[in-house]
Design a binder for these strands. Structure first.
Lengths: 223, 223
DNA sequence: GGAGGCGTCGTACCGCGGTACTACGCGGTC
DNA sequence: GACCGCGTAGTACCGCGGTACGACGCCTCC
């Protein structure tokens, strides 16, 4: 039996959800909330398995409510539901800690499957949104550390020290800065840099930086 | 009617899928392949809407086959199916351009829903995997471009031309190369570069590259 | 003990990258 | 017309980055 808290500012919408969830044996609606603050309070009080959360609400919106519920360490999983598939909503919701994001035009089975998955600790995203999420995923997420066999062989040719140098280059440090931080002379750094460039086939440190990002050795905001 | 190509090295597994897909009106199995190379060939020949792709196969595996099918610009969407939910597989498959990733223990309805979604241009991920994908997503993906207020204000200060220059820098091009491709003199490029560096507060082009990656203006394998 | 990989350091050289400043034509706006 | 932002272009200068050497000490492995 999965307990559910319904959060939506529209009473009629809540009624619809309640009817649906009451009609199946596996879910039980344990409460309703009409805005974010109430949702946070009731989530703490009722400790439902799943919170069905609308995004657009007067006062505290669903994103902020999700953030607070998750931050409070509640056991509840939040499944965000919205009519609009705006990227901002999706991003914000996922970043806020939501376990799922579905569109309100979903079929009953999809919603129930989503609740089931979320309650089990999994996550769901509406297929229409998954495409976009994946595009960004492949664009931004570096090659997985487990992908040993797909790692560029040139990386393997680097010695430990050279790898460190490459990472330092990726941070945008000059040879002098690298020398200072590594407590060696600039000559040494130059020697290493030269070898690194030769090994990875880069013309200059700029291309080395790109290579480093490519291989997941460097990434934004990593300072 | 959705046309499907089944790729799996196990004849019995293929048989199972074919039985399932033949039993519903909306899908039609137009072919089968027992290994990666055959999959690539048949995808080009049969041009199915969806390719049901197994990962582990002798010879060319499903990941590489997916990569080649996608790279060839086939209209087919690839839905990867596997018994093991290893992160490496998931990452590699998505990076290879797969439109979906499901586990073989999925129920028939899930599989059909997945095929339906993929055929429609959407994407699907098994709920059990979505959780992990989302974790990495929130960890790595920077604030969305739609979040105008989160975009670095320095970016907005750039003129269109300067933006192009920054992108070019991000590709690792030298001033001379940029001049050639933009059909201007190197002097002009230098002027632009200097202004870009001043505006974004970068000391040299290396830091400009990092800034570009940071802002999502540049990304690996973008050539 | 010799060989070789690795990290360290030095010298010398040169060219690209970056700075500073000036300048001009074009398209807008006031 | 006057002004200004923008893209274009040039000259002159300097320093960092990168290359090509040679060299030394410290390991490990044979």
């Amino acid at each position: 039996m999965t307990t559910v808290l319904i959060v939506d500012d529209q009473p009629l919408q809540r009624y619809g959800f309640r009817m649906l969830l009451d009609s199946v044996a596996e879910t039980e609606v344990v409460g309703e909330a009409g805005h974010g603050a109430e949702a946070v309070r009731k989530a703490a009080e009722l400790r439902p398995d799943v919170v069905l959360m609308d995004v657009r609400m007067p006062g505290m919106d669903g994103i902020e409510a999700t953030r607070q519920i998750v931050a409070a360490g509640e056991r509840s999983r939040v499944l965000v539901l919205t009519t609009f598939d705006l990227d901002e909503y999706v991003h914000a919701a996922l970043r806020a800690g939501a376990s799922g994001f579905l569109l309100k035009d979903a079929h009953a089975e999809e919603l129930l499957a989503g609740i089931r998955a979320v309650a089990a600790g999994d996550a769901v995203i509406a297929p229409a949104l998954t495409r976009r999420i994946l595009d960004e995923f492949t664009r931004y997420v570096p090659a997985h550390r487990g992908d040993r066999e797909r790692e560029d062989p040139r990386l393997g040719s680097l010695t430990d020290r050279e790898r460190e140098i490459l990472v330092a280059i990726g941070k945008g440090w000059s040879n002098g800065e690298i020398a200072t931080r590594f407590v060696v002379t600039e000559s040494t750094v130059k020697t290493h840099v030269g070898r690194v460039l030769a090994k990875i086939g880069a013309r200059d440190r700029v291309q080395a930086v790109i290579f480093a990002y490519d291989q997941g050795l460097a990434r934004p905001n990593a300072d």
